[in-house]
């Protein structure tokens, strides 16, 4: 007995040292992960800040000649990303319209019928869809919409490819959120004679609102930066356009264009800075919504 006790006390010193070492290891790991993030944001801010002004948001991208003139005199490049901004907003709006309602409904359906074969099949489908590379979704939207419906590159095609990307994200986050609602809440609603559909939209959806909204916002922030599928669908456009049957630009498409034009390099930084800040605030918004309307 005493031997065990001394062995234990002997060990305490060693265990404490291991503890301390491990803690430093964890801190070091955290620092190493965080450094690149600061470097990215820092260099974007330093290089991109100069270009951000009112015109950056209100004017479409400059043509290469304007940019060349500015670059040669060292002025800031005229024009901005308004065509990309409006295109992105248009497509994200349409994609949300296409993806959010069916995504929520499918998620609820899978949750409600989780023991049924068909529901399980849909869930695996969503899982697979989530793993499909986005460029392939672009090709699918190209074949469906660009070839057959709008007969040319279009905002509609871009929206469809983004919607297909959002769909599995929303389905899965919805299902997982619903899973967290205690059965007793559902039963309480049923015990009051609540019809099924009303239980869903007056109890399940409001109770899990924060989880649902978080899922949607994260899906939005995910598609906001998506570039590859848009190259095959929305193509890009130098002008501001709200015609869904015509090509439109998008912020990530503009970044790609700027990158390919040696005269517009500084716009790459500012557009990237903007996109990053936008997506980041979306994530922060998701967090604050999640904590504010948390019931479960």
């Amino acid at each position: 007995m005493t031997e065990i006790n001394t062995a234990l006390t002997d060990n305490i010193g060693r265990r404490n040292r291991t503890n301390v070492r491990f803690r430093y290891l964890v801190i070091a790991g955290a620092v190493i992960t965080v450094i690149p993030i600061f470097l990215i944001v820092g260099s974007l801010a330093i290089k991109g800040f100069r270009q951000i002004n009112l015109a950056f948001f209100t004017q479409p991208a400059p043509d290469t000649f304007q940019a060349m003139m500015a670059a040669s005199t060292g002025d800031i490049i005229p024009g901005g990303i308004a065509n990309g901004l409006t295109g992105s907003l248009l497509m994200v709006f349409l994609a949300s319209l296409f993806a959010i309602p069916p995504g929520l409904m499918t998620g609820i359906y899978i949750y409600e019928n989780s023991s049924q074969k068909y529901a399980r099949f849909i869930r695996s489908l969503a899982e697979i869809l989530q793993g499909v590379p986005s460029i392939i979704l672009g090709i699918i939207a190209y074949i469906w919409i660009v070839k057959n419906i709008t007969k040319g590159y279009s905002a509609l095609a871009g929206s469809v490819s983004l919607a297909i990307m959002m769909l599995p994200l929303i389905i899965r986050s919805t299902e997982e959120t619903m899973r967290m609602i205690p059965v007793s809440i559902r039963e309480a609603a049923f015990a009051l004679g609540t019809p099924y559909y009303k239980m869903i939209y007056k109890i399940l959806i409001p109770v899990s609102f924060s989880g649902l909204a978080t899922g949607v916002l994260l899906a939005l922030s995910r598609i906001l930066g998506e570039t590859a599928p848009l190259m095959l669908t929305a193509l890009g456009s130098p002008a501001i356009s709200f015609d869904i049957t015509k090509p439109v630009s998008a912020v990530p498409l503009l970044i790609w264009d700027f990158y390919n034009d040696p005269n517009m390099v500084s716009l790459v930084w500012s557009a990237s800075l903007f996109l990053m800040v936008f997506v980041l605030s979306m994530n922060l918004l998701a967090r604050s919504v999640a904590s504010k309307h948390k019931y479960i």
């Binding site: 015990a191 009051l192 609540t194 009303k198 239980m199 007056k202 109890i203």
Partner: peptide, 27 residues
């Protein structure tokens, strides 16, 4: 009517709304 083992007021509703939940949930 039914009362359960664990108290289960609707977490998204106020006290007032909880009391009249039977009415609002049945339109």
């Amino acid at each position: 009517g039914m009362v359960f083992q664990r108290p289960n007021p609707f977490p998204n509703m106020t006290i007032y709304e909880n009391v009249v939940a039977g009415f609002s949930l049945n339109d």
